[in-house]
């Protein structure tokens, strides 16, 4: 059976000789990303916890971004999405992304509203 795996990650920056080699390469990358996450989580750099972007700490944005990066490599290389047909890949990836973005948008906006209700109106809950 011919080897038809696409053997490059980072848009061709890193090329591997065999599929097994690529798997180990991805593992190293995922481990590094996890290590960075844990290190940031423990040290909590002052600058990142005191600057906000759309109501959330920069540190949390970094965590979410790194998570999405990890998710990408797990789906693309471990779950072989890189080797699937484009139509299948798009059907699998964009459907949840669309639905989940919508859900998150709606729930977090509503939650923020309830937060202001608890904070500013005549409800006593912290006693």
């Amino acid at each position: 059976m011919a080897n038809a795996h696409k053997l490059e990650i980072f848009r061709g920056l890193l090329k591997f000789k065999s599929n097994t080699e690529k798997i180990w390469g991805v593992l190293v990358f995922l481990t590094i990303v996890t290590a960075i996450e844990v290190a940031l989580g423990i040290t909590k750099p002052y600058w990142l916890t005191h600057h906000y972007f759309i109501g959330m700490k920069l540190l949390n944005w970094i965590f979410i971004l790194l998570t999405l990066v990890k998710a990408y490599y797990i789906a693309w290389d471990f779950m072989h999405l890189r080797d699937e047909k484009k139509s299948l890949r798009r059907a699998i990836v964009w459907t949840p992304i669309f639905l989940v973005s919508y859900l998150i948008f709606i729930l977090l906006f509503e939650a923020d509203y309830i937060y202001t209700v608890y904070k500013d109106s005549f409800i006593k809950w912290d006693f």
């Binding site: 949840p96 639905l99 998150i104 729930l107 977090l108 939650a111 937060y115 608890y118």
Partner: peptide, 22 residues
């Protein structure tokens, strides 16, 4: 997997909801 991913997303989003609330 896609449908299960949506289930988990629902849980995590509701976690986010409660967290933003408090």
């Amino acid at each position: 997997i896609v449908s299960d991913a949506l289930t988990f997303s629902g849980f995590l989003a509701s976690y986010g909801f409660s967290r933003f609330k408090f």
